[in-house]
Amino acid sequence: MSISSLELTEDDRKLIELARSIVDANTDGEHGIYTMGAAVRAVDGSMYGGINLYHFLGGPCAELVALGHARASGARELTTIVAVGNHGRGPVGPCGRDRQILFDYHPGIRVILPTEKGLRSVRITDLMPLAARWTPDEGTQEFDPSLFE
């Protein structure tokens, strides 16, 4: 399977900077090795941020907090998301749980992450090969190859 990655746009760089500013301003001190900031962009260009709440039992990832922020602000159609680590770690890819949630709620979203070609944006569908969508009404759906075209 070939992954379709795109070079970053100026808007992508602004999204990264928002996530970076959130994590830099709110990191868990010098030992906050798990602190992540995230930012998501809506179709109208609005950006929403979030930061994770690390806890040894688990906790909401920064991407999920950013998705909640966007939704609470009325944004329903999202185009791009990025997560950035504290202490200059830069953008990182989403965990498996975040990938599934992004795929279920926003199957057309692009994710900014490091690739062999540097930072690029990729479709969430490229990060979820052969994935099956889940909905509250119908549960797990059969694999739909049209989502990957």
Rank of each mutant, 00 (worst) to 15 (best):
G108K: 12
V65F: 08
V65E: 15
G93H: 08
L57I: 06
A75V: 10
T79A: 07
P107N: 14
L18T: 10
T125E: 08
N86R: 06
P60F: 11
C61K: 00
L67G: 05
E7G: 10
D104T: 03
G139Q: 08
Y48W: 04
E77I: 14
I112L: 00
S5K: 13
E7V: 10
A132T: 14
V111N: 07
D12H: 06
E63L: 02
F103L: 15
F56S: 14
R99N: 03
E30V: 15
P107E: 11
L15D: 02
G90T: 06
T115P: 12
I3Y: 13
L67R: 00
L113I: 08
H106D: 03
L18M: 12
D98N: 07
H55I: 03
I33G: 12
S5M: 11
L8R: 05
N86W: 05
K117W: 10
S5L: 04
V122C: 03
G50Y: 03
R120C: 05
A42V: 09
A25T: 07
P91S: 01
L6M: 13
A25I: 07
G45Q: 09
D104N: 10
D28Q: 01
D12F: 10
E142K: 15
G96Q: 06
P129C: 08
L127Q: 08
T115R: 11
G45S: 09
P129Y: 01
I124F: 11
I3C: 06
P91W: 11
N86L: 04
D28S: 10
S4N: 12
H55F: 09
I101L: 07
L67Y: 02
G59F: 10
L18W: 01
G50V: 00
L18Q: 09
N52F: 01
D126K: 04
P94R: 05
G90D: 05
R89G: 00
L57A: 13
A72P: 00
M36C: 08
D126I: 11
L119W: 01
L53H: 02
S121P: 11
T79I: 03
I81S: 05
E7R: 03
S5C: 03
D12V: 07
D144M: 14
R71V: 12
L113V: 07
A62D: 13
A132E: 15
I22Q: 04
S4F: 14
L53F: 14
E10L: 09
S21K: 15
R123W: 14
G32P: 05
V84F: 00
D144P: 07
T125R: 02
M1G: 07
R41N: 01
M128T: 03
H106Q: 11
Q141K: 08
G45T: 10
D104P: 02
R13E: 15
A83W: 04
A42M: 09
A83D: 12
E30M: 14
Y48F: 15
T9K: 02
H31I: 12
I109C: 13
I112H: 05
D104Q: 05
G37H: 05
W134I: 00
I109L: 12
T80A: 10
G49Q: 02
A39P: 04
C95P: 00
E17K: 15
E7D: 12
D137M: 08
T35P: 08
P136Y: 09
L18C: 09
M128N: 00
T27P: 00
S46A: 14
T125P: 02
G108E: 09
S146L: 11
G85S: 04
E17M: 14
Q100H: 06
R133V: 07
R133S: 12
L102T: 09
